[in-house]
Design a protein around this nucleic acid. Structure first.
Length: 335
DNA sequence: GACTCGTGGCG
DNA sequence: TCGCCAAGAGT
């Protein structure tokens, strides 16, 4: 109730995070970019990308007038590339449908591609001081423990009840708007720095007195982990066509894994005319990919569709996924 | 409701 | 070393 929110708010003001690169601003564009980058991605992994992205695309207009290739290049290595494609697509929509100004209406924000309920709420709160409830991984963990909610939090019925709690606890009363930022930020700060998944710092937690998991000594059992199946494994052979100083890259389909990025042509098994490079494994969230790179010396420039020849140095700076970057860098260090 | 979609840090 | 999962959204 009020007690919960007040405890979070006062704790955040004293002990929360106040100096992240996307804080201390009300620019909806800056906040939007940060919220997209932070989806399923930890703060430490985002900070470097965020600075470069904002330098390259300082506002909506510049982002919208760039190419998707430019945007994917800045996103290269961060993962979940549909976020970058949707960010770019949303920028176009803001130009076309909202006169180039980021909308402040919640439903308008929610209508933008790549923005779901929680991200829309975070933008609404941080950029426009309109308190709307969020429900991210941090909040789910805090709620699961504080209210002793069993079951994997992303199960639809569990998540639904957590949204109800998020709405109920969200401070929307009179004169609460000024604390909306502190409450929303505080929930995430608490989950990220105190109510962590392993070894939570309950001794410094501002709400431990009423935390059901803490009182019943079940903190280490909550939240209920996701039911895991064994990861499926796949194999692929990447063909690295290379002449004196250039490699051939192939643009991947716009959807699916690494959509819209540049990679190597893939086949099921190695051809006999190549030099087999060391195999390695790249692990995704939902499968393992065993990659066998094969180097093929090619004096002529094969004219395959959706391909280009590019120097090693330029290739490394392109919109490529991480395993491709690793391969290119190993080739570069050889030469 | 289940699946897809990246990468890196951590115990 | 390896399983887990993080400021989720789209299909």
């Amino acid at each position: 109730m009020i007690v919960f929110a007040d405890a979070i708010i006062s704790w955040q003001k004293r002990h929360g995070r106040h100096d992240l690169p996307w804080q201390n601003t009300s620019d909806p564009y800056a906040i939007w970019v940060s919220e997209i980058m932070l989806q399923q991605t930890q703060v430490g992994a985002v900070i470097g990308y965020y600075g470069k992205f904002m330098q390259r695309f300082p506002n909506i207009h510049i982002l919208a007038s760039a190419t998707q290739e430019d945007v994917l290049q800045q996103w290269s290595g961060l993962g979940y590339y549909s976020r970058a494609r949707n960010l770019y697509s949303a920028a176009q929509k803001i130009m076309d449908s909202f006169h180039g100004r980021f909308p402040n209406d919640f439903d308008d924000i929610l209508s933008l591609p790549g923005i779901g309920r929680s991200t829309a709420a975070a933008i609404s709160t941080f950029a426009f001081n309109q308190p709307m409830p969020i429900l991210d991984g941090n909040v789910k963990r805090v709620f699961a423990r504080y209210f002793l909610i069993e079951g994997w939090p992303s199960l639809p019925n569990i998540e639904k009840s957590m949204w109800q709690i998020a709405v109920r606890e969200n401070p929307v009363g009179l004169n609460k708007a000024e604390n909306a930022v502190a409450y929303t930020q505080g929930l995430m700060d608490l989950g990220a720095t105190v109510c962590t998944r392993s070894q939570p710092k309950c001794h410094i937690c501002p709400i431990k007195k009423n935390c059901q998991a803490h009182l019943k000594n079940q903190t280490n059992l909550l939240p209920t982990p996701k039911p895991r199946k064994t990861l499926p494994e796949r194999n692929t052979t990447m063909l690295i066509y290379m002449n004196a100083n250039e490699v051939m890259l192939e643009k991947r389909a716009s959807k699916g894994i690494w959509g819209g990025l540049w990679s190597f042509p893939e086949v099921d098994s190695a051809p006999i005319n190549g030099e087999i490079l060391p195999k390695f494994t790249h692990t995704f969230t939902h499968f393992k990919l065993h990659i066998e790179p094969v180097l093929i010396k090619s004096s002529h420039q094969d004219n395959m569709p959706n391909t280009l020849w590019i120097t090693l140095d330029e290739a490394i700076e392109s919109a490529i996924p991480t395993p491709v970057r690793n391969i290119l860098q190993s080739l570069n260090s050889k030469n």
